[in-house]
Nucleic acid binder design. Sequence first.
DNA 1: TTATGGTTTGACCAAGTAGTCAAACTTATT
DNA 2: AATAAGTTTGACTACTTGGTCAAACCATAA
Lengths: 204, 204
Amino acid sequence: MDNSQNAEERIFEAAMDVFCDHGYDGTKMQMIADKAEISKASLHYYFRSKDKLFEKVVQKLFSTLLTAVTGSLKPEDDIETLIRQLISKHIDMFNQYKRETSFIFSEMMKHEDLIEKVLSGVHNIKDIQMIAERLQIERDAGRIIDISPQNLIINMISMSFYPIIAEPLVKRIFAYSDTEYSELLEQRKQIVADFVLAAIKRRD
Amino acid sequence: MDNSQNAEERIFEAAMDVFCDHGYDGTKMQMIADKAEISKASLHYYFRSKDKLFEKVVQKLFSTLLTAVTGSLKPEDDIETLIRQLISKHIDMFNQYKRETSFIFSEMMKHEDLIEKVLSGVHNIKDIQMIAERLQIERDAGRIIDISPQNLIINMISMSFYPIIAEPLVKRIFAYSDTEYSELLEQRKQIVADFVLAAIKRRD
DNA sequence: TTATGGTTTGACCAAGTAGTCAAACTTATT
DNA sequence: AATAAGTTTGACTACTTGGTCAAACCATAA
């Protein structure tokens, strides 16, 4: 671990790393201390307890993931571009932060109360609502089929999420190599977007 | 816990329950013993170690989930019925076994080696391959658009999987109540199937 | 230099933790 | 009833764990 950073940063980064790999219960304070190259007592000096450190890590990671997607969406784009962007950014984000994603969703299911704590400390959820509104406008105008924005958004995120969370399983079942699977994920940016656009296109 | 069953069954069921709720690291042998109403020493009498018990639990659960889906698919059905069935059964299965699903996928990401052990003890993976072959036939015949069976299957399972694994998050973001969310999942059986069928329909 | 205030740690503790084992208990067989 | 074989457990061990604390360390300002 980079000793040039100050202790608090070093600890926090080590904590993010270890928590992601081992989850809350699998993480021992000593592991974080070792990775940060600092004593276990110092961990408790900077962050009072394992719980407190954990909560801050979850908050930070969740915010990082959310920003990675919403930060790059331009509301002024046309709906096709918006959909292609949304899918592409989600696949990139889930892929880049696959350990973090798996960790967040896994812990979220175990401690549902985490959601409230995490979402209250995050302000760019409205970006999702912005997308929903745009889709609703297209729907009202009859430019896409009659599907609720919620269902449409869930569908798009689903198809970006699953192949990464279930990577080891899918890879094994369809006998993909590592490189083939990377290619698949890259191709899916277009495949999924085409799929969605075909599905919502009106037939006259 | 039902004392009429024999000890081994009681322990195993208790273990499935506790492991699902707390994961491997969060589960303590004493918790399982308490739930099975038996001494901790008896746990080790029937299942030598925590690891051995865990592996058997994972194996059993994975097989249960897989069978819940593949057991009800009839290859002789037409492709639309097959697709509707596949989606409906997956949503039902993920919904009925949401704790188990979350547990399996979560542990699978942490210990990728589990997959080999689990898949080797399971023989109905070919049912998935059967579906893939059917989709390939439709594709070759030009009755659906040009999309690989793998991508199509991934899409269908994705849209059934995510809303359940991310339930607390989605529920909170779109402000669904418990009953509203149940209704959503029920409706999605048709919505997702329609979505997929619309997406793969050829346009001439 | 020295006093001050933040930083770091080795040693420690109380509460768990998986796993063991000899002894007690139960059931079926003769 | 007596023997044997399988079952159950309390008590135990060796080890781990989150957290504490007094003492040492280090920078800086007076």
